[in-house]
Amino acid sequence: MVRDTTIGSRAFDILIIVILIAVTITCVLPLWYTLAMSLSTKSAAAAGQVSLWPVGFNLNSYKQLLQDNQFFVSFWTSVKRVLLGAGLNLLIVPLMAYPLSKTIKDFRLRNVLMWVLIFTMLFNGGLIPLYLTVKQLHLFNSIWSLVLVGGAQTLVFNVILAMNFFRNLPRELDEAALVDGAGPWYILLKVYVPLAAPVLATVSLFSIVYHWNEFLYGLVFMTRQEFYPLQTYIQQVVVMLDPSTMSQDQLQRMSQLSNRTLNAAKIFIAMIPVLVVYPFLQRFFIHGITLGSVKE
C-alpha cells in the first residue's frame, strides 16, 4: 500500500481521527457519568454537583442494591427472556429464511408469504388489540408473552436479513449438494447454516439487545411487579413523577424514592451484560449486516 504523505492528506487523517475521538467520547461519556453518579453521595447528586468525577466517593448505592431482592428477580427474568428469545430467534430465522431465499420456481408461495411478512412489518394492530390477544392466550404474567410478542416483532427484519444473505451464497453450492443427493434439510443444516455464521451472529445480537432493553411489554403484559423484566423494573424507578396529581402521602413516599445514586447504580449494572456480549459478537455484526445487504 502506498502512503499518501502530502500535508493535505495528513491533515485529513488527523481530522478524521479527531472526529472519531469526539464521537467516541460522546458515546463513553454518558456511561462514565452514570458510573460517577452511582459512586457519589446522595445529596451531592441531588445538588447536581457530580460531573465527571464522583463527589464523596462511596459504595453505598451498590451495597443498597445488593439488598434489593426485586432487582435480582427481574435480572433473572431478563436473562431467561434473552436466552429463550434469542434461542427461538436463532431456531426460526434460518428455517424461514431458507425457503424464502429460493426463487418462485422452487417455492410457489414465496412472494405471497413475503408480502404477508412485509405487511406485518409496516402495519400493526396497535397496543390494545395486542393486549387483548395476549390476554386471550392466557399469557399474562408469563415469560412467553415477552418472548413471543417481542420475538415476533423483530423476527421479520431478521428473516429478511438472513434471506438476503442466503441469496448471495453461490447457487452452485446448492446444485452441487443436490447432485450429490442431499435433501433440503441436509443442505440447510450442513451447507447454509455453517456458511451463515456471520448473519446468524448478527440476528442473535439484535435479538439479545432487543430482549434485554425492551421495557414496554413488561409493563403491559405483567399485572404484578414481581414479574417485571429488568428494564421495566428500572424504568419504573427512574422516570420522574409528575407531582401535580399526587396526594400528599404519595409525595412523602416519592421523596424517599428519589434516589439518583441508587438509580445510577441500577442502570450501570443493567448495562453490563450487553457491554460484555457486544465485543464478542461485534466483528460478526459489522460483517454480517453488509453481507446481507448487497444482492448480486
Binding site: 397496543l127 390494545i128 393486549y131 387483548l132 390476554k135 409493563l219 403491559v220 399485572t223 404484578r224 411487579q225 424504568q235 419504573q236 424507578v237 422516570v239 413523577l241 399526587m246 404519595q250 413516599r253 416519592m254 424514592l257
Partner: peptide, 23 residues
Amino acid sequence: KDAFTASPTNYNQKVSLSISSND
C-alpha cells in the same frame, strides 16, 4: 385480590389500558 399492581410511574398507563380494553 390484586387484578394488577403498578408503580406510581406506570399506574396511570395501566389504568388507561384497563379502561380502553374494558378489562
